[in-house]
C-alpha cells in the first residue's frame, strides 16, 4: 500500500501517512482512494491542466483551490469522467481506471454537485433526490410496469434512504415542491442531497459555496463537515473562497494556470511562498 504513495509533490504531505491514522477531530483517515498521476488536459492547442499529480485518501476532505481559470473545474471533470485526460492516469483504490463514460464513473461510487446548479427542473425535490438512487435500483422493465415485486420493494426501500438524507439536510418541508420554484441556496442543498443519496464513496463538490451569503456559507460548511463526520464520506471540493476552505479541509491542492503550485495541510499551504505569491499575494 505504502509503495503506491510515493510523494512526488511538494513539501509536507506527511500529516496523514498511515492507514487508520487518527486526526485531531477523531475522524479516521484511511488509505489512498484515488490517485491522479501526471494528468495533462488539452483542448486543441490550449493546455488547461499541465502535469498534475495528487491523491485523495478515504475519509478526508480534500480541497482544490486556485484563482478563476486555474483549471479546478476541469480537474473535477476529469475525476468524474466528463473529460478524458490527454495524458496521465487515474488510480481508483489502487487500480488504474480505464477511460470511462461519466455514468460508469458514477456507478463506481463517485457522485458530484455542479457549479451552476444542474438539478432536474421539471421534477419535485423528492424525485430529484430519488434520481441519486438510480444506480442502486435494478428492477426490470416488466416489474416496473406492473409495480410489483422487486420494483415496489425497491421503490420503498430507496425512499427510506432518501428520506434519511432529506431529514439530514433539513429539506423535509419542500419535499414535494418542484425544484424550479426554489431559491438558490435551497437548490444547492437539494443538489447535495441528490449526490448524498447515492451513498458515494467519493463526493465531488464543485464550488458548493459559490454565490452564497455568509449565513448560507456557514450552513453549507456545517453540512459538509457533518456528512464527512457521520457517514465517513470522502469529499473532494473546489472553492476559490480561501477562508472557508482552510477551515474545512484536511489537505489542500493549490492550482494556478493549470499547474499545481502547492499541496499540503491548510497551515502548510498558507506558509508556502509560491502560493502566497501566486494566489494570496495578489491584491484583490
Amino acid at each position: 500500500m505504502d509503495g503506491s504513495r510515493t510523494d512526488d509533490s511538494t513539501e509536507g504531505q506527511e500529516t496523514v501517512r498511515d492507514e487508520g491514522h487518527v486526526v485531531a477531530e477523531g475522524r479516521r483517515i484511511g488509505p489512498v482512494l484515488m490517485e491522479l498521476r501526471n494528468i495533462t488536459l488539452r483542448f486543441g492547442g490550449v493546455v488547461a491542466i499541465k502535469d498534475i499529480s495528487f491523491d485523495i485518501r478515504e475519509g478526508e476532505i480534500r480541497a482544490i483551490i486556485g484563482p478563476n481559470g486555474a483549471g479546478k473545474s476541469s480537474m473535477l471533470n476529469i475525476i468524474s469522467g466528463f473529460y478524458t485526460p490527454s495524458e496521465g492516469a487515474l488510480l481508483y483504490r489502487g487500480e488504474t481506471r480505464p477511460p470511462m463514460r461519466p455514468y460508469e464513473v458514477a456507478r463506481l461510487g463517485v457522485a458530484r454537485t455542479f457549479q451552476n446548479i444542474a438539478l432536474f427542473e421539471g421534477m419535485t425535490v423528492l424525485d430529484n433526490v430519488m434520481t441519486g438512487r438510480l444506480t442502486h435500483m435494478k428492477a426490470g422493465l416488466v416489474a416496473q410496469a406492473l409495480w410489483w415485486g422487486r420494483a415496489r420493494d425497491e421503490e420503498i426501500a430507496n425512499r427510506e434512504v432518501v428520506e434519511k438524507v432529506i431529514d439530514f439536510l433539513e429539506i423535509q418541508a419542500i419535499r414535494k415542491t418542484p425544484v424550479g420554484r426554489l431559491p438558490y441556496g435551497l437548490k444547492k442543498r437539494v443538489e447535495l442531497a441528490r449526490a448524498l443519496a447515492a451513498e458515494p464513496s467519493l463526493l465531488l463538490l464543485d464550488e458548493p459555496m459559490a454565490g452564497m451569503n455568509v449565513e448560507e456559507k456557514e450552513d453549507m460548511s456545517r453540512f459538509i463537515l457533518d456528512v464527512n463526520d457521520e457517514f465517513g464520506t470522502t469529499i473532494c471540493l473546489i472553492e476559490h473562497d480561501m477562508g472557508v476552505v482552510m477551515d474545512l479541509s484536511d489537505r489542500v491542492v493549490v492550482m494556478d494556470y493549470g499547474r499545481k503550485i502547492g499541496d499540503g495541510t491548510p497551515d502548510e499551504v498558507r506558509r508556502n511562498q509560491d502560493v502566497i505569491d501566486a494566489y494570496l499575494g495578489v491584491a484583490h
Partner: peptide
C-alpha cells in the same frame, strides 16, 4: 429530458 449532461454524471 431536463438536463442530459447532469443525468449522465449521476449514473444514467
Amino acid at each position: 429530458r431536463d438536463m442530459d449532461i447532469a443525468a449522465e454524471l449521476i449514473g444514467i
